[in-house]
Amino acid sequence: MSEHPTDHAATAIRAEKNWATIAVLIIAFLAGMAAFAGIHQATMPQARVETADPTTLHLSGEFVESNLGSALEPDGSVTVRAIGQQYSFTPQCILIPTDTTINIRATSADVIHGLLIQGTTVNTMLVPGYISVQSARFRKPGEYLMPCQEYCSFGHEGMWGKVKVIDKSEFMAMASKQERLSCVK
């Protein structure tokens, strides 16, 4: 090692630089993948920030209890409105048709909660003061669990909702009779 110290030093620096270049390329590749997936696949961050006063949700606006649940929109999509509160979701069971664009709009009436539908990419925080919006699409009928995923005080472990996905035609038949749907019995 002592024969040509300057040569060794130069070799070391070259190896370092090569590795640094590889590292930058790895990172650029990963970031590029993330950006590509973001633009060409459905899951995108919530596009707009929207606010809602948690103390008056029940008085007026879109989160009054009679307006919660699944609503068929004129464009054929379905809007699901829900509230998280200590310690339940309203509606407790969300009804969703297959093969339909679902827009979930949810907020919290008190503390921070989370809304997670197991086995799907539906996963959002419910922060009091703000409305969380997320879109989804379900292919097969079935039942999913919808736990609260953020600690919301001592009853957090009991805050589990449900999601029921039914066949689109069945949902449409129900929607023609009732404006807001849910699977709460």
Partner: peptide
């Protein structure tokens, strides 16, 4: 990654 995170966020 935003897209992958939605599957595991807060789990």
């Amino acid at each position: 990654s935003y897209q992958l995170d939605t599957t595991i966020h807060n789990t």
